[in-house]
Amino acid sequence: MKVIQTAGFATLMLCAFNSHAHMLWLEQPDAQTVRAYFGEYAESLSETQQGPLKSFNAAVATQDKNTYKPQVQEKFIEYKVKGTGDVRVQQDLLHGEMLAQFRAKTGRSSTQPVAEFEIVPTQANGNQFTVYFQGKPLAKQEVEVVADNRWTQKFYTNEQGQFTINTPWKGQYVLEAGKPVEEAGQFQAKPYKTKYLVATLSFNVQ
C-alpha cells in the first residue's frame, strides 16, 4: 500500500469526507473478470493512471481463501478470478492527519461482514442489507444506491442497521456508505488523527 501526499489527492479526500463522492468500486463483466475503479460512479467518472487510480495499483483481490494479483490498466485495475464467491479489494491511503480506508466488494452471497465497515445482505442475493461497523449493525447510516442507468437514491438504516431497496432495472447496482471515525493511530510508521471509511457493494441484476 502506498502513502499519498499530493495536492490532488488532498482534494479528492476532502470531497470524499464531505460528500462521499470518490469511492472504490468493483465491476464484474464476466465470471472470471473483476475490475476496480476509483471515482464517482453516479457521475460516470473514473480516474486514470495519470491521476489517483495509480494509488491502487498494488491492491490485491480476495475471493474465499484465494488471492489475486492486480493487472494494471489505464482506467481500471483488473483481476482474473476463478471462484464464484464475493470478491473484495481494499486499500488504505494516508493524507496528512487522515487515513482513508476504501473497502469494495462485488457480489451479495456472503451474509457476514469481514471488514470493519461493510454493507452486507441479510439473505444471499436479497435486497435487504445491513450496514456493519466493528461487527455491529449501525443505525441511522446513510447509504447511496446507484443503478446502471445512474438513477440514484439515498437510504438511511433503521435501528437494526438495515435498509431495503428495489431493483427494477437490469444491470449493475452500486451501494456506497462513508463513515468518519475519530481514531488515531499509525500507518506505515506515520501518525494519523482520524479515519474515514468508504464501503461499496456492487452486484448485477439479470
Rank of each mutant, 00 (worst) to 15 (best):
R103M: 14
A58T: 15
A124R: 06
I119Y: 05
V60Q: 08
V120W: 02
T67N: 12
F133N: 00
Y132R: 01
F129H: 09
F102Y: 10
T48C: 06
N66W: 03
T130A: 07
T62E: 13
Q49G: 15
A115L: 01
N125T: 10
L53M: 09
V87K: 08
Q50C: 06
E74L: 02
P121T: 05
N125Y: 13
L99I: 12
V131P: 08
H95V: 06
A58G: 14
Q134E: 15
T48F: 09
S110K: 00
D86Y: 08
F133I: 07
K75I: 05
V114P: 09
Q90F: 05
T67G: 06
V81S: 07
G51P: 01
V120A: 04
T130K: 06
I77G: 06
L99T: 04
T122K: 07
G107Q: 00
F76H: 14
D86C: 05
A59K: 02
T62N: 04
R103K: 10
V60A: 10
G96N: 00
K75Y: 13
A124F: 00
G107W: 07
R88K: 11
A59M: 10
I119F: 02
K82L: 10
T111S: 06
M98V: 15
F133Q: 12
N125M: 13
T122W: 01
Q112S: 02
H95E: 05
E47N: 10
E47A: 04
Q101H: 03
T130I: 07
D92G: 05
Q134F: 15
G107C: 03
Y68C: 03
M98W: 08
K105L: 04
P113N: 00
F102S: 01
G135I: 15
Q50S: 14
A100W: 01
F76R: 08
Y132N: 07
A115F: 01
G83R: 07
T67W: 12
D86I: 00
Q73D: 15
Q101Y: 03
T106F: 00
H95I: 12
A58W: 12
N66I: 11
G135Q: 13
A100E: 01
K82Q: 11
Q71W: 09
F56P: 05
E118H: 11
Q91V: 11
Q91A: 12
F129L: 09
K105W: 04
T106D: 14
E118Q: 15
G51C: 13
A59W: 11
Y68G: 02
A124H: 01
Q49S: 14
